[in-house]
């Protein structure tokens, strides 16, 4: 069954629920730390120092993205350039300005491209987190800074990875926050990072033949610091496989400042 809700009702609902742009998402402070890249060039530092920064406590929702496309027509599904978002951009929304039953207003927005996520962040005076920032934030467990040793987190994370992507995502921030107060870094959707295209694992064996020689530190996992971090490898693989206009059913984003 398909519900049809008049557009203004959706907008009113969004406003009433505080899901529009007027109600800013809470930002949490991620303390300074170090990020150890999974794979690195022989010339890279083994650790990346990350300064403290602010991160949205949860992913951007359909309601918030609705307010964004309402204010910025060029990012509406019917008007966006294919250059900046592929054909499945917001495909699950009922209409241009109507998320509809498959995209609840309080669920994370997915099927958005890197360009769209960046434009959204810019419109809110924010930016996308870098890979290092995102991974640092996501490294924390529920109750301890080293999430890799947080058994509960690992259990939840791997249970999530084993589940297929649901037809309709659940609401954001309904799970358990991590030590920094951030929700859904694991267990809801994948998230864009600003420098996704620094992941240099490309399929262009011909094009990058000059790079392979000195770019990668051994064969990926062999040179990796923590080979047990399967989820991090999945994220890395995802990032390196994406193009900036790609959209997928399980890829959303959150902003940083």
């Amino acid at each position: 069954m398909r519900l049809t809700v008049p557009r203004f009702t959706v907008l009113l609902l969004a406003a009433a629920l505080g899901l529009g742009a007027a109600e800013p998402v809470a930002l949490v402070t991620i303390p300074a730390g170090t990020y150890v890249p999974l794979q690195r060039s022989v010339k890279d530092e083994p650790e990346v120092k990350v300064a403290a920064f602010l991160l949205d406590a949860r992913p951007v929702t359909n309601g918030e993205f609705l307010a964004f496309v309402t204010a910025n027509p060029k990012w509406r599904r019917s008007q966006v350039s294919r250059l900046f978002a592929d054909a499945s951009y917001l495909e699950h929304w009922a209409g241009d300005l109507e998320p509809g039953p498959r995209a609840p207003l309080d669920a994370p927005v997915v099927r958005v491209s890197w360009f769209a996520a960046r434009a959204y962040a810019r419109a809110h005076g924010k930016r996308l987190p870098t890979t290092a920032e995102w991974e640092l934030a996501a490294a924390a467990g529920y109750t301890r800074p080293d999430g890799a040793n947080d058994e509960e987190l690992s259990r939840d994370l791997y249970a999530w990875l084993a589940r297929p992507v649901p037809a309709v995502h659940r609401a954001v921030a309904t799970g358990r926050p991590n030590l920094h107060g951030a929700y859904d870094l694991h267990g809801l959707v994948w998230e864009w990072v600003d420098d996704f295209n620094t992941a240099m694992v490309t399929g262009e064996s011909r094009g990058d033949s000059g790079l392979e020689r000195d770019l990668f530190c051994g064969a990926g996992a062999v040179g990796a610091k923590d080979t047990s971090n399967y989820a991090a490898f999945m994220r890395s693989a995802l990032r390196s496989s994406l193009k900036a206009n790609n959209t997928t059913t399980s890829l959303g984003f959150r902003c940083a400042k």
């Binding site: 060039s41 010339k43 620094t198 992941a199 240099m200 490309t202 262009e204 094009g207």
Partner: peptide, 17 residues
């Protein structure tokens, strides 16, 4: 579709396109 990344020594790894 160009990927690039600043190395610790200030040079860049990058695809050649």
């Amino acid at each position: 579709g160009v990927k690039y990344k600043r190395e610790a020594d200030g040079s860049f790894a990058h695809s050649n396109v």
